[in-house]
């Protein structure tokens, strides 16, 4: 990253400001949606969908994953596989109890 030109770095800072505005707006949308009193399933889905967009913006631009080395992606893909398994385990148990 340090090899970037002055103009490139200045362009990046303008993107950071745009991402900040998007994150602030999405935070207000998240709070606004919670006042709609949707069904629990819809509320969870929508809240996590918005949080995922916000998280992706932070990871892609602030953590510059949009242009990272292949090894970092490999580490993160492996991590996400285990993370998803960790989250699905209790959900699987819940559906077992329902069934």
């Amino acid at each position: 990253m340090s090899g970037h030109s002055v103009e490139e770095i200045r362009r990046e800072t303008r993107v950071y400001i745009l991402v900040f505005v998007a994150l602030a707006v999405l935070t207000l949308v998240t709070v606004g949606v919670s006042y709609l009193h949707l069904s629990f399933g819809a509320a969870v889905g929508l809240a996590l969908f918005i949080a995922s967009i916000k998280g992706s913006l932070v990871a892609a631009f602030f953590m510059h994953l949009i242009s990272e080395r292949r090894l970092v992606y490999a580490v993160l893909i492996l991590t996400m596989i285990f993370f998803v398994a960790l989250i699905l385990l209790p959900l699987g148990g819940y559906h077992d109890r329902l069934g």
């Binding site: 998240t30 919670s34 809240a47 996590l48 998280g55």
Partner: peptide
């Protein structure tokens, strides 16, 4: 990023 997920999970649902 962790807080982005904690906030709706704990406070809004």
């Amino acid at each position: 990023l962790v807080w982005i997920f904690l906030f709706p999970t704990l406070y809004l649902l």
